[in-house]
Amino acid sequence: MKILAFAGSSSSTSINRELVKFVLKSFPEDEINLLDLNDFEMPIFSVDTEKKGFPEQAHQFLAEIEASDVIICSMAEHNRNFTVAFKNIFDWCSRINSKVFQDKKMFLMSTSPGGFGGGNSMAIAQKNFPDWGAIIIDSFSLPKFYENFDLENGVINPDLLKELNDKIAHFKQQVQ
């Protein structure tokens, strides 16, 4: 099973990336392709720019999805929405293939420093990603990242860790 993983953030200190890396420890390393959105920087999408052609990075991102069996991602939140970095990649890719996620099974996550755990971006993704070809098997939101996560140990809140592990196990059962 080839796993494509990413955080919906371009921050070098992304807490969503840390959550993704923690979850990936539950899967064999040789099956993981962890992307960095910074490797897919493109002009800001506009219809006028699109007339000049599609950036190679958009084709590359779609090729990474195509080469995978499943997707594990954690959506960062800026101002109650996706980050500009993710949204721009998504906008370009959706113009090439409206089924951006190409009917891949997905484990969807989010986290934030606040108590809502990135719930706004998570809700948007849960509502809309299926229309764009994602088959969301399960989702997990980690509230209060800095209180519930340690960079060395991962999720340290026992109740949240159990919930996450249960969802990882469920996801694994559904994708095998």
Rank of each mutant, 00 (worst) to 15 (best):
G8Q: 08
P130G: 03
K87T: 14
D30W: 05
S94P: 00
K162W: 00
S14V: 11
R80I: 00
F40A: 11
L24V: 10
H170D: 09
V175H: 10
P55F: 10
E29V: 12
F27A: 13
E41H: 08
I124A: 11
E56S: 08
P143H: 02
P143C: 02
G118D: 13
L37N: 06
K105L: 05
K99L: 13
T83Y: 12
L24H: 05
V20M: 02
S14T: 12
G8V: 01
D131F: 13
D103E: 14
L142H: 06
D30M: 08
N148I: 04
W132C: 06
G154N: 06
E163H: 00
A134G: 11
L34E: 13
A5S: 15
C93V: 04
G133W: 02
D166C: 13
A5E: 14
M122E: 07
H78P: 01
F149W: 01
L108W: 09
K2C: 05
A67G: 06
Q176I: 12
N79H: 11
E56L: 09
F101L: 00
L24M: 07
F40Q: 07
S11T: 11
G133Y: 00
S10D: 14
L19I: 09
N79W: 06
N16T: 10
P55Q: 15
E41W: 02
I3K: 02
N157K: 03
K172M: 09
D166R: 10
Q57L: 02
V155I: 15
L62P: 09
D39K: 14
P143S: 12
W92I: 01
Q57E: 15
S14C: 11
F107Y: 14
L34Q: 03
D39P: 10
G53R: 12
F40W: 08
D91V: 11
M75K: 00
Q57H: 14
S121R: 01
Q173L: 06
A76M: 12
L161N: 12
Y146G: 13
S9I: 03
K52G: 06
L108V: 09
I65T: 09
A85S: 15
Q174R: 14
P43D: 14
V70S: 04
F149E: 01
C93Q: 04
D69L: 04
S112P: 13
K172G: 09
I65Y: 14
V70P: 03
V20I: 12
F40C: 10
H170W: 13
E18L: 12
S121M: 08
I168T: 10
K162F: 00
L34T: 02
I124E: 05
L34D: 13
A125P: 05
I65K: 06
L62M: 12
D36T: 06
Q173P: 00
